[in-house]
Amino acid sequence: MRHALPLALAALLLGGCASHKPEDFNGTWINQDAIDAAVKGTSLRQALADHGPVFEWKVDVKNQKASFSNGFEAADGRLAANQKDWQVEFEGGLSEQLTLAGDELLAKDPSGHTQTFVRAQGSNSTPLGSSFERELYKAYLGGDWKILEGRGQGAVVRFSDNGSVTGLPGPDRFALCMAGDCATMGAGNDSLWLERNQLGAPWIFKREGNRLEIFQAVNRAQPDEMPQLAAGARQWVLEKN
Rank of each mutant, 00 (worst) to 15 (best):
W29M: 02
W29L: 01
W29P: 02
W29F: 03
I30K: 01
N31Y: 04
N31T: 04
N31F: 08
Q32K: 01
Q32F: 00
D33W: 05
D33Q: 11
D33Y: 03
A34E: 07
I35T: 13
I35Y: 03
I35L: 06
D36S: 13
A37D: 08
A37R: 14
A37V: 07
A38H: 07
A38N: 01
A38Y: 04
A38W: 12
V39S: 09
V39F: 11
V39L: 07
K40A: 15
K40N: 12
G41D: 15
G41L: 08
G41F: 06
G41E: 14
G41W: 11
G41C: 04
T42M: 07
S43M: 10
S43R: 10
S43L: 10
L44F: 01
L44N: 05
L44T: 04
L44C: 01
L44I: 02
R45A: 11
R45V: 11
R45I: 12
Q46H: 12
Q46W: 06
A47V: 06
L48F: 09
L48S: 05
A49L: 10
A49Q: 10
A49G: 06
A49F: 08
D50K: 14
D50T: 08
D50M: 08
D50F: 04
H51Q: 15
H51D: 12
G52A: 03
G52E: 04
G52L: 08
P53A: 01
P53F: 00
V54N: 06
E56F: 00
E56P: 04
E56C: 04
W57M: 14
W57G: 11
W57T: 10
K58H: 15
K58E: 06
K58P: 02
K58S: 05
D60A: 02
D60F: 00
D60V: 01
D60W: 02
V61M: 08
V61H: 03
V61G: 00
V61N: 07
V61A: 02
V61K: 00
K62R: 07
N63S: 14
N63P: 03
N63V: 12
Q64L: 13
Q64P: 08
K65P: 00
